[in-house]
Nucleic acid binder design. Structure first.
Lengths: 341, 341
DNA sequence: AGCCGAGCTTGGAACGTTTCACAACGCACC
DNA sequence: GGTGCGTTGTGAAACGTTCCAAGCTCGGCT
């Protein structure tokens, strides 16, 4: 009653197990007649290869995985789409594992994937703890860190987040803002601290007063709304006139809540996001954002991973760093977006 | 040089292979001293269980998969988050497979997952072809269809899309619109045709002129923008005064392009979306949309799947249908959203 | 007729686990 | 001093493949 195996197929077709295997893997070795017979037996029994057995017997898993920071952030699904494309071209499947910004969950996925002997892992880590990845790599599972730089003994694909933070803050300074807030967290996430660092660096350079940091527990819309509430609650005299958010999810939440509570954007509060996700341009007030080459990031990461998986011996780890780009829209520009007035 | 196996661990610790297995699976059967010895051997060698072998030898995969229509649509990642929560509580991992609105790709994933003997599959199918799912189920892999109704021999979790379409169209009719466009496609996707059917039904009931159907090739923002272009290109006399989009991705694209091309929303063009994704409320003109209980959908689906996977014998298939709800926002309401004037 | 090689098929080893019947040991008890 | 029991550890079978050496059957060639 359990799933039919090759043995059953062989019996049913009156051939040896090896022949069934040959029909599946080297059909050219099998005589026409026999092949047909085996194939109908397979169809009749509803035989399905057991991938575990297959893999055990020396095969490879032909599978990659991308352990994502949070699948609900469109930025990462765009990156994933890029990676998936490359995987597909190489004949590999790619699983997405949602870390949900949860360190323990990510760790569990890593364990599982290693035990499953996937050919390689792409990961955007929640925390800075590199030892787990080091162990993985040491034991033979190639790892590429995505959207975060890595040390010399690992491939990584990232965008210069410090520069991105600098761009964002500089833009706000240029527009005349002096009291600027940074919205983002938790600090354990590398991108958050890098973007913050970049922004601080710009302010220091300009001799402006330091950032007001509104720390969040996650990088999602809900947290953005909470930050909006906190900002709107401040007396206008002390309220920052601009906010730089660690990503667009936060920025969109912040924007939404700020508007709801009566702040005008950008007049009362200018907002800069990060990632330039597709929805940023379509926001209530189209969002100024720091853009990253999402798909390219994914593609490159997958290519590096494949290269390492295919030729582990001579592999030289690369840390690719792309440049972010500021996309200015109405959320920071004083011009009225349209002539409705 | 290849990954160490239990045999290596056993040799290193001076015990039998069976003992190593016991340390891992039934530690209480092993004496303290021996257990310690084995554990240090494991640590020293960097031994990692081979999940394939494990699974082969009668174990189960403790893994679910959700084959998503398109991971770049936030609706589905929200559903996935709900499902994942349930899976996690049950001690299972869940892989996300991005079908990318591509029938062939979905099929490939299904094959792979079946060969991998996952415990069950959640799927939002691209096309209406049920035979593949039927085959899966027949051979013993439980399947639950998500966001689409199914026949009596399969579990499904869906929202009444016909009703949703009706709600949307009725709302537009109530607001006085008579020339209404439907934006969506391809028709192979069940949700699209159901929502269209519902809308048509409302128009017929009201004796209004039939829908102008703008068919799209995908359900994404880019296609929405293209539809916007087509609409804006029509002479005002023949242009629909309202559009109902098969999902929010389309609606957001349409909105964006319509505004860019000088149409005022909702005065020149009212827009209703579908799914009420988080970004709908934050759009340039907050989007009226048909809301579905996303997380609940995912949770329920996963629960049904688990139930079937755990007790296949007595299982009775259920087709759960939830009710959608119209959320009215500025994209269809004539009131000016704020007092800016 | 005998031999050869081509074409096809076979059977069994190996992959790394888990499980299970059983062996070995020490110990208490009669 | 044997018996019986509980505690630990052992070794081999089994899971479903793939791969390979070896076998079989033919027809053609010398």
């Amino acid at each position: 009653m359990s799933a039919p195996s090759m043995k059953d197929v062989a019996a049913h077709a009156g051939v040896a197990v090896g022949t069934v295997s040959n029909v599946l893997n080297h059909p050219e070795l099998v005589a026409e007649r026999t092949r047909k017979r085996v194939q109908t037996a397979i169809a009749q029994l509803g035989f399905v290869r057991n991938e575990s057995a297959r893999q055990l017997r020396g095969g490879t898993s032909r599978t990659l995985a991308y352990v994502v920071l949070d699948t609900r952030n469109p930025f990462f699904t765009d990156v994933a789409a890029g990676a998936q494309q490359v995987a597909e071209e190489a004949g590999l499947a790619m699983y997405l594992c949602d870390g949900g910004e949860n360190s323990a969950r990510q760790a569990r996925y890593l364990d599982l994937l290693e035990q499953q002997r996937v050919e390689g892992i792409l990961i955007t880590p929640v925390d800075a703890d590199d030892s787990r990845l080091a162990a993985l790599a040491r034991r033979g599972t190639p790892v590429v860190v995505v959207d975060r730089g890595a040390g010399p003994d690992r491939c990584s694909v990232s965008v210069d987040d410090v520069l991105g933070g600098d761009l964002a803050a500089s833009h706000l300074l240029d527009a005349g803002h002096r009291r600027i807030a940074f919205v983002g967290g938790p600090r354990s996430i590398g991108q958050v601290t890098d973007r913050l660092t970049g922004a601080e660096q710009a302010l220091t350079r300009a001799g402006a007063e330091p950032l007001t940091v509104l720390e969040t527990t996650r990088l999602d819309v809900a947290e953005g709304r909470r930050a909006g509430e906190r900002l709107a609650g401040l007396p206008a005299s002390r309220r920052p006139t601009a906010a730089f958010c660690a990503n667009d999810m936060l920025a969109l939440g912040l924007l939404q809540q700020a508007v709801r509570l009566g702040l005008r954007v950008p007049q009362d509060l200018a907002i800069v996001g990060y990632d330039d996700i597709e929805f940023a341009a379509a926001a209530a007030v189209p969002l100024t954002s720091v853009s990253q080459p999402r798909q390219l990031l994914g593609r490159t990461a997958a290519e590096l991973l494949l290269a390492e998986a295919r030729h582990p011996e001579g592999h030289v780890h690369q840390q690719r760093v792309f440049e972010p780009e500021l996309v200015v829209r109405e959320s920071t520009s004083m011009r009225r977006p349209d002539g409705v007035a």
